[in-house]
Amino acid sequence: MLKQLFFILILTVVSTAFTIPSAVLKKADKEIMKFYEIEKIQKEIIAVPKDINSLTASEFGDGNLFKIRSNGQFLGYGYIGNAPSKTATFDYLVLFDTNLIITKSKVLIYREEYGGEISSRRWLQQFDGVSPASKELKYNDDIIPISGATISVRSMTKAMNELLQSIAMLQKRNVL
């Protein structure tokens, strides 16, 4: 009986540990509707098979990769990710058009006192127009550094490169 309770407890912790917090989902939905200038969206979760997911640099699961639709029209794709900052993490949203070219990126929740400058629209626009076929983005070449936000800038750059590599793999494997 004790083993069963322990197993259920572990299963519950594992299954809830990787879910996207409702506050993050709410902010993402709001941002998507604002970007597309619509009042209602439908998100169609893209299930990535475990064997393919294990090969990707980004983690896909719990609805963090999805197709965006409104009134039956396919608008593009969305991805909600989480990346490390100096002592915490931040949540971000990346929107792709129907050809998987980045159209918008947004830091949804930043949990540090310093480095929040990466949330600025002007800085994030550097990622617009980048596709999985693009070359790897390099800190201080393609991506402008921000004084006082070096760790977060490097982390976001790494996260975007990993996402683009992962999306390319999903395309190659006909998941997208």
Rank of each mutant, 00 (worst) to 15 (best):
Q4T: 15
V48D: 01
L124R: 07
F74Q: 07
G148F: 15
K135F: 08
Y77Q: 05
L108C: 00
A159Y: 05
T12A: 09
Y92K: 01
S54K: 14
D141S: 13
Q73D: 14
A23T: 12
K26I: 11
V48T: 02
I45S: 09
E162Y: 06
L55S: 08
K67E: 10
V94N: 07
T103Y: 10
Y36I: 06
E59S: 13
L9N: 15
S155C: 10
I52R: 01
K138H: 12
N174T: 04
E162K: 05
L176N: 02
M156E: 08
S15W: 09
E113L: 13
A23G: 13
F74I: 06
K26L: 07
K50R: 15
K40N: 10
T89F: 12
D128S: 10
I46T: 01
M160P: 04
S22N: 10
E59D: 11
G61H: 05
M156K: 04
V153I: 08
L137D: 00
E113I: 12
V24K: 01
S22M: 09
V24P: 01
A57I: 03
E37L: 12
I144G: 03
D91H: 07
V14W: 04
F66A: 10
I41D: 05
R69L: 14
K86A: 12
F18G: 06
P84V: 15
S120M: 08
Y110L: 05
I143D: 03
I52M: 04
K104E: 12
E39K: 10
L137T: 02
R121D: 13
E37H: 14
K30S: 12
F66W: 07
E113W: 12
V13W: 13
A88W: 11
I52H: 00
L176G: 07
V24A: 03
A28M: 00
Q165D: 11
L93H: 04
G63D: 02
L163A: 04
S131G: 15
F18K: 09
I80D: 02
F60W: 05
I109R: 02
R69W: 15
Y110V: 06
L95I: 03
Y139F: 15
A23C: 07
K158C: 01
Y77C: 07
A47H: 10
D97T: 02
R69E: 13
I101G: 11
I52L: 09
Y110M: 05
R111C: 11
V48K: 04
D141C: 13
I151G: 07
A133T: 13
M33E: 09
S54F: 15
G116S: 09
E44H: 13
Y92S: 04
Y92P: 03
L170Y: 00
I45K: 08
V130H: 02
K50W: 10
I46P: 01
V94W: 01
I41Q: 04
S70M: 06
L65M: 05
M169N: 00
A28S: 08
L95N: 02
K50V: 14
L95S: 00
Q4E: 15
I167F: 05
E117Y: 11
Y114G: 07
L176I: 05
K3A: 15
G129K: 11
G63C: 02
Y110D: 07
L93V: 02
M169I: 03
